[in-house]
Design a protein around this nucleic acid. Sequence first.
DNA 1: ACCTGAACACCGTTCAAGT
DNA 2: ACCTGAACACCGTTCAAGT
Lengths: 190, 190
Amino acid sequence: MGEVRPYHHGDLRRHLVAAARAELEEHGVANVVLTRLAQTCGVSVAAPYRHFPSKEALLAEVANGGFTELAAALGEAARDGASPRDRLLDAGVAYVRFAIANPHLFRLMFNTDVRTPVGEESRESRGVLVSLVQECDLAVPVTRAVRASWAMVHGQAALCVGAMGKFEDLTDETIREDLEVLLDGMILAG
Amino acid sequence: MGEVRPYHHGDLRRHLVAAARAELEEHGVANVVLTRLAQTCGVSVAAPYRHFPSKEALLAEVANGGFTELAAALGEAARDGASPRDRLLDAGVAYVRFAIANPHLFRLMFNTDVRTPVGEESRESRGVLVSLVQECDLAVPVTRAVRASWAMVHGQAALCVGAMGKFEDLTDETIREDLEVLLDGMILAG
DNA sequence: ACCTGAACACCGTTCAAGT
DNA sequence: ACCTGAACACCGTTCAAGT
Protein backbone atom coordinates (compact mmCIF):
# COMPACT_ATOMS: atom_id res chain seq x y z
CA MET A 1 0.00 0.00 0.00
CA GLY A 2 1.84 3.08 -1.27
CA GLU A 3 5.57 3.61 -1.38
CA VAL A 4 7.52 2.89 1.72
CA ARG A 5 9.69 5.81 2.71
CA PRO A 6 13.17 4.49 3.47
CA TYR A 7 15.01 5.26 6.68
CA HIS A 8 12.13 5.87 8.92
CA HIS A 9 13.00 2.99 11.14
CA GLY A 10 16.43 3.89 12.47
CA ASP A 11 18.41 2.61 9.54
CA LEU A 12 19.78 5.95 8.49
CA ARG A 13 22.29 6.07 11.30
CA ARG A 14 23.88 2.76 10.38
CA HIS A 15 23.65 3.53 6.70
CA LEU A 16 25.50 6.79 7.25
CA VAL A 17 28.27 5.07 9.18
CA ALA A 18 28.62 2.43 6.48
CA ALA A 19 28.72 5.06 3.76
CA ALA A 20 31.32 7.06 5.69
CA ARG A 21 33.45 4.01 6.18
CA ALA A 22 33.33 3.25 2.45
CA GLU A 23 34.13 6.82 1.44
CA LEU A 24 36.91 6.96 3.99
CA GLU A 25 38.79 4.00 2.60
CA GLU A 26 38.09 5.08 -0.96
CA HIS A 27 39.02 8.76 -0.87
CA GLY A 28 40.74 9.43 2.44
CA VAL A 29 39.41 11.25 5.47
CA ALA A 30 40.01 14.68 3.94
CA ASN A 31 37.59 13.82 1.15
CA VAL A 32 34.74 12.43 3.18
CA VAL A 33 32.02 14.98 2.56
CA LEU A 34 28.81 14.88 4.50
CA THR A 35 26.73 16.14 1.60
CA ARG A 36 27.79 13.20 -0.51
CA LEU A 37 27.03 10.73 2.27
CA ALA A 38 23.54 12.14 2.56
CA GLN A 39 23.11 11.85 -1.18
CA THR A 40 24.28 8.24 -1.09
CA CYS A 41 21.71 7.51 1.59
CA GLY A 42 19.02 9.33 -0.36
CA VAL A 43 18.32 11.98 2.25
CA SER A 44 18.76 15.72 2.47
CA VAL A 45 21.99 17.29 3.63
CA ALA A 46 20.42 18.19 6.96
CA ALA A 47 19.20 14.69 7.78
CA PRO A 48 22.49 13.40 9.25
CA TYR A 49 22.21 16.02 11.99
CA ARG A 50 19.23 14.16 13.39
CA HIS A 51 21.61 11.30 14.21
CA PHE A 52 24.98 12.92 14.81
CA PRO A 53 25.78 16.29 16.35
CA SER A 54 28.62 16.81 13.88
CA LYS A 55 30.64 15.25 11.11
CA GLU A 56 33.35 14.65 13.66
CA ALA A 57 30.99 12.56 15.79
CA LEU A 58 30.12 10.45 12.77
CA LEU A 59 33.80 9.85 12.06
CA ALA A 60 34.36 8.98 15.72
CA GLU A 61 31.78 6.23 15.38
CA VAL A 62 33.57 4.92 12.31
CA ALA A 63 36.80 4.89 14.31
CA ASN A 64 35.15 3.02 17.16
CA GLY A 65 33.92 0.43 14.70
CA GLY A 66 37.51 0.07 13.56
CA PHE A 67 38.64 -0.73 17.08
CA THR A 68 35.98 -3.40 17.38
CA GLU A 69 37.13 -4.90 14.10
CA LEU A 70 40.74 -4.74 15.18
CA ALA A 71 40.03 -6.53 18.44
CA ALA A 72 38.20 -9.26 16.54
CA ALA A 73 41.05 -9.61 14.05
CA LEU A 74 43.61 -9.95 16.83
CA GLY A 75 41.53 -12.49 18.70
CA GLU A 76 40.92 -14.57 15.63
CA ALA A 77 44.55 -14.52 14.57
CA ALA A 78 45.65 -15.68 18.01
CA ARG A 79 43.19 -18.52 18.21
CA ASP A 80 45.23 -21.21 16.54
CA GLY A 81 48.70 -20.54 17.90
CA ALA A 82 50.52 -23.54 19.37
CA SER A 83 52.13 -21.61 22.23
CA PRO A 84 51.51 -18.34 24.07
CA ARG A 85 54.45 -16.91 22.22
CA ASP A 86 53.07 -18.01 18.85
CA ARG A 87 49.69 -16.55 19.67
CA LEU A 88 51.22 -13.20 20.53
CA LEU A 89 53.27 -13.22 17.35
CA ASP A 90 50.22 -14.09 15.28
CA ALA A 91 48.28 -11.26 16.82
CA GLY A 92 51.14 -8.86 16.14
CA VAL A 93 51.20 -9.80 12.49
CA ALA A 94 47.43 -9.37 12.34
CA TYR A 95 47.76 -5.88 13.84
CA VAL A 96 50.06 -4.72 11.07
CA ARG A 97 48.00 -6.52 8.43
CA PHE A 98 44.91 -4.71 9.65
CA ALA A 99 46.61 -1.36 9.19
CA ILE A 100 47.82 -2.26 5.71
CA ALA A 101 44.38 -3.51 4.72
CA ASN A 102 42.62 -0.40 6.09
CA PRO A 103 45.16 2.42 6.00
CA HIS A 104 42.72 5.33 6.13
CA LEU A 105 40.67 3.73 8.88
CA PHE A 106 43.81 2.96 10.85
CA ARG A 107 44.96 6.56 10.64
CA LEU A 108 41.55 7.81 11.63
CA MET A 109 41.63 5.56 14.67
CA PHE A 110 45.02 6.62 15.96
CA ASN A 111 45.79 9.99 14.50
CA THR A 112 42.99 11.79 16.19
CA ASP A 113 43.85 15.45 16.43
CA VAL A 114 40.76 16.18 18.39
CA ARG A 115 40.79 14.91 21.92
CA THR A 116 38.11 12.39 21.21
CA PRO A 117 36.92 10.80 24.41
CA VAL A 118 38.16 7.37 23.52
CA GLY A 119 35.42 4.78 23.45
CA GLU A 120 35.29 1.46 25.18
CA GLU A 121 36.09 -0.18 21.87
CA SER A 122 39.73 0.88 21.92
CA ARG A 123 40.21 -0.48 25.40
CA GLU A 124 38.82 -3.77 24.22
CA SER A 125 41.37 -4.17 21.45
CA ARG A 126 44.09 -3.31 23.91
CA GLY A 127 42.76 -5.94 26.29
CA VAL A 128 43.32 -8.67 23.73
CA LEU A 129 46.98 -7.74 23.53
CA VAL A 130 47.32 -7.58 27.32
CA SER A 131 45.95 -11.06 27.88
CA LEU A 132 48.19 -12.51 25.20
CA VAL A 133 51.26 -10.96 26.78
CA GLN A 134 50.23 -12.19 30.21
CA GLU A 135 50.25 -15.77 29.02
CA CYS A 136 53.82 -15.43 27.85
CA ASP A 137 56.50 -16.00 30.42
CA LEU A 138 58.52 -12.86 30.20
CA ALA A 139 61.20 -11.57 32.52
CA VAL A 140 59.85 -8.02 32.48
CA PRO A 141 56.69 -6.64 34.08
CA VAL A 142 53.55 -7.19 32.04
CA THR A 143 52.95 -3.46 31.73
CA ARG A 144 56.31 -2.93 30.14
CA ALA A 145 55.98 -5.96 27.90
CA VAL A 146 52.62 -4.76 26.65
CA ARG A 147 53.92 -1.29 26.00
CA ALA A 148 57.00 -2.48 24.16
CA SER A 149 55.14 -5.07 22.09
CA TRP A 150 52.39 -2.68 21.21
CA ALA A 151 54.87 0.04 20.30
CA MET A 152 56.70 -2.39 18.02
CA VAL A 153 53.69 -3.52 16.03
CA HIS A 154 52.13 -0.07 16.02
CA GLY A 155 55.38 1.45 14.78
CA GLN A 156 55.57 -1.04 11.96
CA ALA A 157 51.96 -0.37 11.10
CA ALA A 158 52.23 3.41 11.27
CA LEU A 159 55.37 3.54 9.17
CA CYS A 160 53.71 1.26 6.64
CA VAL A 161 50.66 3.40 6.13
CA GLY A 162 52.30 6.78 6.72
CA ALA A 163 54.77 8.85 4.84
CA MET A 164 58.19 7.77 3.74
CA GLY A 165 56.96 4.43 2.54
CA LYS A 166 60.12 2.71 3.68
CA PHE A 167 58.23 -0.23 5.03
CA GLU A 168 56.16 -1.08 2.02
CA ASP A 169 57.77 -4.43 1.43
CA LEU A 170 56.90 -5.93 4.79
CA THR A 171 56.04 -9.59 4.66
CA ASP A 172 54.41 -11.59 7.42
CA GLU A 173 57.79 -13.09 8.21
CA THR A 174 59.60 -9.79 8.65
CA ILE A 175 56.83 -8.46 10.84
CA ARG A 176 57.03 -11.56 12.96
CA GLU A 177 60.82 -11.56 13.14
CA ASP A 178 60.99 -8.00 14.41
CA LEU A 179 58.57 -8.78 17.17
CA GLU A 180 60.43 -11.98 17.89
CA VAL A 181 63.76 -10.34 18.64
CA LEU A 182 61.94 -8.05 21.01
CA LEU A 183 60.47 -11.02 22.84
CA ASP A 184 63.90 -12.66 22.96
CA GLY A 185 65.21 -9.57 24.68
CA MET A 186 62.32 -9.62 27.12
CA ILE A 187 62.83 -13.21 28.07
CA LEU A 188 66.39 -12.47 29.07
CA ALA A 189 66.11 -9.04 30.56
CA GLY A 190 65.62 -8.79 34.28
CA MET B 1 62.55 58.00 2.90
CA GLY B 2 58.92 56.89 2.89
CA GLU B 3 57.49 53.72 4.31
CA VAL B 4 59.10 50.48 3.35
CA ARG B 5 56.60 47.99 2.07
CA PRO B 6 57.21 44.71 3.84
CA TYR B 7 57.62 41.37 2.03
CA HIS B 8 58.86 42.62 -1.25
CA HIS B 9 62.17 40.88 -0.88
CA GLY B 10 61.23 37.23 -0.63
CA ASP B 11 60.47 37.20 3.08
CA LEU B 12 56.81 36.35 2.70
CA ARG B 13 57.49 32.75 1.86
CA ARG B 14 59.48 32.12 5.01
CA HIS B 15 57.12 34.20 7.08
CA LEU B 16 54.19 32.11 5.88
CA VAL B 17 55.95 28.88 6.75
CA ALA B 18 56.80 30.19 10.21
CA ALA B 19 53.25 31.36 10.77
CA ALA B 20 51.88 28.00 9.60
CA ARG B 21 54.21 26.16 11.91
CA ALA B 22 53.09 28.29 14.85
CA GLU B 23 49.40 27.91 14.07
CA LEU B 24 49.85 24.18 13.56
CA GLU B 25 51.27 23.55 16.99
CA GLU B 26 48.81 25.96 18.57
CA HIS B 27 45.54 24.86 17.02
CA GLY B 28 46.17 21.61 15.17
CA VAL B 29 46.37 21.00 11.45
CA ALA B 30 42.60 21.06 11.02
CA ASN B 31 42.53 24.64 12.25
CA VAL B 32 45.34 26.07 10.19
CA VAL B 33 43.50 28.54 7.99
CA LEU B 34 45.27 30.22 5.12
CA THR B 35 43.28 33.42 5.50
CA ARG B 36 44.53 33.85 9.04
CA LEU B 37 48.12 33.18 8.02
CA ALA B 38 47.87 35.89 5.39
CA GLN B 39 46.42 38.24 7.96
CA THR B 40 49.25 37.45 10.36
CA CYS B 41 51.75 38.26 7.64
CA GLY B 42 49.90 41.46 6.75
CA VAL B 43 49.04 40.49 3.20
CA SER B 44 45.88 39.74 1.28
CA VAL B 45 44.35 36.29 1.19
CA ALA B 46 45.54 35.79 -2.35
CA ALA B 47 49.18 36.64 -1.70
CA PRO B 48 50.23 33.17 -0.47
CA TYR B 49 49.39 31.77 -3.89
CA ARG B 50 52.32 33.68 -5.33
CA HIS B 51 54.59 31.43 -3.26
CA PHE B 52 52.73 28.15 -2.91
CA PRO B 53 50.44 26.40 -5.38
CA SER B 54 48.16 25.28 -2.56
CA LYS B 55 47.70 25.14 1.18
CA GLU B 56 48.81 21.54 1.01
CA ALA B 57 52.13 22.55 -0.50
CA LEU B 58 52.69 25.04 2.30
CA LEU B 59 52.01 22.34 4.89
CA ALA B 60 54.37 19.99 3.05
CA GLU B 61 57.13 22.55 3.50
CA VAL B 62 56.35 22.75 7.19
CA ALA B 63 56.60 18.97 7.38
CA ASN B 64 59.94 18.97 5.59
CA GLY B 65 61.23 21.51 8.07
CA GLY B 66 60.16 19.11 10.79
CA PHE B 67 62.26 16.33 9.31
CA THR B 68 65.28 18.61 9.23
CA GLU B 69 64.70 19.49 12.87
CA LEU B 70 64.25 15.84 13.79
CA ALA B 71 67.51 14.85 12.11
CA ALA B 72 69.31 17.61 14.00
CA ALA B 73 67.76 16.56 17.30
CA LEU B 74 68.79 12.94 16.77
CA GLY B 75 72.32 13.89 15.83
CA GLU B 76 72.74 16.18 18.76
CA ALA B 77 71.33 13.68 21.23
CA ALA B 78 73.72 11.00 19.99
CA ARG B 79 76.79 13.18 20.16
CA ASP B 80 77.80 12.53 23.74
CA GLY B 81 77.09 8.83 24.13
CA ALA B 82 79.91 6.74 25.57
CA SER B 83 79.30 3.73 23.33
CA PRO B 84 77.56 3.03 20.03
CA ARG B 85 74.78 1.42 21.98
CA ASP B 86 74.39 4.46 24.21
CA ARG B 87 74.33 6.78 21.25
CA LEU B 88 71.56 4.78 19.61
CA LEU B 89 69.57 4.75 22.83
CA ASP B 90 70.01 8.49 23.26
CA ALA B 91 68.81 9.10 19.73
CA GLY B 92 65.82 6.86 20.33
CA VAL B 93 64.81 8.83 23.38
CA ALA B 94 65.26 12.06 21.44
CA TYR B 95 62.97 10.73 18.71
CA VAL B 96 60.11 10.17 21.14
CA ARG B 97 60.84 13.43 22.93
CA PHE B 98 60.60 15.28 19.63
CA ALA B 99 57.15 13.83 19.01
CA ILE B 100 55.96 14.73 22.48
CA ALA B 101 57.33 18.25 22.19
CA ASN B 102 55.76 18.78 18.74
CA PRO B 103 52.75 16.49 18.52
CA HIS B 104 50.93 18.26 15.71
CA LEU B 105 54.08 18.66 13.65
CA PHE B 106 54.95 15.01 14.21
CA ARG B 107 51.54 13.89 13.01
CA LEU B 108 51.76 16.16 9.99
CA MET B 109 55.10 14.63 9.11
CA PHE B 110 54.05 11.02 9.28
CA ASN B 111 50.32 10.91 8.90
CA THR B 112 50.26 12.25 5.40
CA ASP B 113 47.08 11.13 3.72
CA VAL B 114 48.13 12.64 0.49
CA ARG B 115 50.90 10.85 -1.27
CA THR B 116 53.32 13.70 -0.74
CA PRO B 117 56.48 13.12 -2.71
CA VAL B 118 58.65 12.77 0.33
CA GLY B 119 61.44 15.31 0.43
CA GLU B 120 65.12 14.71 0.89
CA GLU B 121 64.72 15.90 4.46
CA SER B 122 63.00 12.74 5.61
CA ARG B 123 65.71 10.57 4.14
CA GLU B 124 68.25 12.61 6.03
CA SER B 125 66.66 11.95 9.42
CA ARG B 126 66.50 8.28 8.57
CA GLY B 127 70.17 8.34 7.65
CA VAL B 128 71.10 9.42 11.16
CA LEU B 129 69.39 6.37 12.56
CA VAL B 130 71.00 4.06 10.03
CA SER B 131 74.52 5.17 10.81
CA LEU B 132 73.94 4.80 14.54
CA VAL B 133 72.68 1.26 14.09
CA GLN B 134 75.62 0.39 11.86
CA GLU B 135 78.05 1.28 14.60
CA CYS B 136 76.38 -1.14 16.97
CA ASP B 137 77.50 -4.72 16.76
CA LEU B 138 74.26 -6.56 16.24
CA ALA B 139 73.66 -10.14 15.25
CA VAL B 140 70.97 -9.23 12.74
CA PRO B 141 71.30 -7.51 9.36
CA VAL B 142 71.49 -3.74 9.54
CA THR B 143 68.34 -3.34 7.48
CA ARG B 144 66.35 -5.37 9.94
CA ALA B 145 67.90 -3.68 12.95
CA VAL B 146 67.06 -0.26 11.55
CA ARG B 147 63.51 -1.26 10.79
CA ALA B 148 62.91 -2.79 14.20
CA SER B 149 64.54 0.08 16.11
CA TRP B 150 62.72 2.67 14.13
CA ALA B 151 59.42 0.87 14.51
CA MET B 152 59.95 0.70 18.27
CA VAL B 153 60.63 4.40 18.80
CA HIS B 154 58.08 5.46 16.23
CA GLY B 155 55.45 3.27 17.84
CA GLN B 156 56.14 4.79 21.23
CA ALA B 157 55.99 8.25 19.73
CA ALA B 158 52.82 7.65 17.73
CA LEU B 159 50.97 6.10 20.64
CA CYS B 160 52.06 9.01 22.82
CA VAL B 161 50.72 11.71 20.56
CA GLY B 162 47.78 9.75 19.16
CA ALA B 163 44.55 8.52 20.55
CA MET B 164 44.12 6.34 23.57
CA GLY B 165 46.65 8.25 25.59
CA LYS B 166 47.92 5.10 27.20
CA PHE B 167 51.51 6.18 26.91
CA GLU B 168 51.26 9.58 28.46
CA ASP B 169 53.42 8.79 31.44
CA LEU B 170 56.51 7.85 29.46
CA THR B 171 59.74 8.91 31.08
CA ASP B 172 63.14 8.96 29.44
CA GLU B 173 64.00 5.79 31.32
CA THR B 174 61.00 3.79 30.14
CA ILE B 175 61.58 4.87 26.57
CA ARG B 176 65.18 3.79 26.84
CA GLU B 177 64.38 0.51 28.53
CA ASP B 178 61.95 -0.59 25.84
CA LEU B 179 64.51 0.06 23.17
CA GLU B 180 67.13 -1.67 25.27
CA VAL B 181 65.33 -5.00 25.49
CA LEU B 182 64.97 -4.89 21.73
CA LEU B 183 68.71 -4.39 21.35
CA ASP B 184 69.36 -7.23 23.78
CA GLY B 185 67.28 -9.47 21.58
CA MET B 186 69.16 -8.34 18.52
CA ILE B 187 72.54 -9.02 20.01
CA LEU B 188 71.57 -12.60 20.64
CA ALA B 189 69.48 -13.42 17.64
CA GLY B 190 71.22 -15.02 14.73
C1' DA C 1 9.93 11.36 15.61
C1' DC C 2 12.17 12.15 11.44
C1' DC C 3 13.05 14.63 7.40
C1' DT C 4 13.11 18.72 3.74
C1' DG C 5 14.32 23.28 1.73
C1' DA C 6 16.65 27.04 2.02
C1' DA C 7 19.78 29.73 3.95
C1' DC C 8 24.23 31.23 6.38
C1' DA C 9 29.22 31.00 7.53
C1' DC C 10 33.68 29.78 6.56
C1' DC C 11 37.51 29.15 3.77
C1' DG C 12 40.35 27.49 -0.31
C1' DT C 13 41.20 29.19 -4.78
C1' DT C 14 41.10 32.17 -8.96
C1' DC C 15 41.64 36.27 -11.74
C1' DA C 16 41.68 40.74 -13.51
C1' DA C 17 43.75 44.77 -12.11
C1' DG C 18 47.07 47.62 -9.64
C1' DT C 19 52.30 49.38 -8.56
C1' DA D 1 57.83 40.61 -9.89
C1' DC D 2 54.66 40.84 -6.30
C1' DC D 3 50.45 42.08 -4.33
C1' DT D 4 45.20 43.65 -3.88
C1' DG D 5 40.10 43.39 -4.27
C1' DA D 6 36.51 40.98 -5.32
C1' DA D 7 34.46 37.13 -6.58
C1' DC D 8 33.34 31.97 -6.95
C1' DA D 9 32.96 27.15 -5.24
C1' DC D 10 32.50 23.98 -1.78
C1' DC D 11 30.80 22.25 2.33
C1' DG D 12 29.62 22.11 7.44
C1' DT D 13 25.85 23.62 10.08
C1' DT D 14 21.33 25.68 11.40
C1' DC D 15 16.38 26.39 11.44
C1' DA D 16 11.75 26.98 10.37
C1' DA D 17 8.52 24.21 8.27
C1' DG D 18 6.53 19.88 6.62
C1' DT D 19 4.40 14.76 7.45
